[in-house]
Amino acid sequence: MTPRFRHPSVLPGFGLTLGFAVGYLSLIVLIPLTMAFLRALDLSWDQFWQAVAAPRVIASYRLTFGAAFLAAAFNTVFGLIVAWVLVRYRFPGQRLVDALVDLPFALPTAVAGITLATLYSSNGWIGQYLKPFGIKIAFTPLGVIVALVFISLPFVVRTVQPVLEDLEAEVEEAAASLGAGRWQIFRRVIFPAVRPALLTGFTLAFARAIGEYGSVIFIAGNLPMVSEITPLLIVGKLEQYDYGGAAAVSVVMLIISFILLLLINLLQRSSQARSSGEVAA
């Protein structure tokens, strides 16, 4: 490989480090991942279609992507409030709360799964209070959403927090001195500034929630057509040695999430353009 430098560098080790990094990434990630696509291509079109478009599989896509979307949306609203409260206000135990927001990143998903299933079952700490209202969470699609809210909770908080911290007080003061009310300042000054971060947080949460497996399977009940997520379906196919089917469903899942993330990225770009336009105006 003949690297082409924009700036010639005197530092050594370019070939060694790049070679190792690219080789490692290829061996661990890229080549194995390509195999999944090749395996799916081994199927005939009919086999492929049967694997990825069976009613049970379609139902699982709807649940997986729908629940991930709702969980990420829920976290966008509450994540903004949490980030706001952590940056703008002071209350007792704040630093502890701040540190604990990352718990879903550190806690093994299986632990989250069995705990949430226990809490939200009809005789659990939380589930027992919902039962009189006829709300069942554990072993229903709602349970899937609860698990996904838990595992994707930190993303929005952690992307919005630094933006709020860096927001300059002067802009708000100027708006206030020009007679803007608090709500108006939030809507016209603060919100446009955090909107890109909010979208990034949403995207990360959404992407993470789509693939989640460990926390969901305990609370979902895993009823085919009702509360069975796509990753579980893939595991099921693997257990029956239907490697081709598993690869086909995985490829479809990867492609759908890729397209969705691309769309959100485009949305974000236009949102960013709008934000800077608003600031300029």
């Binding site: 693939g211 690869a247 990867l254």
Partner: peptide, 20 residues
């Protein structure tokens, strides 16, 4: 590409090694 494993479901990560 370095971020790719974050975008892939853990189940798919396991699966690719089974396929291999």
């Amino acid at each position: 590409l370095i971020d790719l494993p974050f975008a892939v479901s853990p189940v798919i990560a396991g699966m690719i090694y089974v396929l291999l």
